[in-house]
Amino acid sequence: MSEEQENPQENNPIDLNKSENPVEIPSTSGPVTPPPFQQPPPFGQFQGGMGQQNLPNSTISLVLGILALPACCFYGIFGLIFGIIAWVLGGGDVKKYQSNPGLYTESSYKNAKAGKICGMIATILSLLFIGFVILIVVGAITHPDAYDQFFKGFR
């Protein structure tokens, strides 16, 4: 439940704009970072994103995140695998964008974030299903008679 409650906070676009500014201000004041990498971001932003690249894994993470939902039906394991891959790829891209926001396009950042959240939801769903299956298997092992009666009642 705690993971699901974190989602609405990440959905807010207002938080992103707030988080971008503190990243940019230290990068201009910090003497460690090289100057050629500081200047392209403002140019790219003013020119409407002409010199910006897409994030590398944003599309893959979005597609995998959506495919993870129908993939839940195979034991829940395929949904778990797809969901975790989408979560990790999307999360990595989100971090990459937040470390230097000017280099990458904002649309690919949104895609990466959507992929991350879709992967998260699919992972939670498959975990719920796997937990349900484990409960039933444990119940069948500890009370085999009740399990047999339950199934005979409907056959």
Partner: peptide
Amino acid sequence: FGAFAIKVAFLGIAVIIL
């Protein structure tokens, strides 16, 4: 608004399945 719409629709579908 594509990414946002996908997120909302995805959550809705997950709830429908559940």
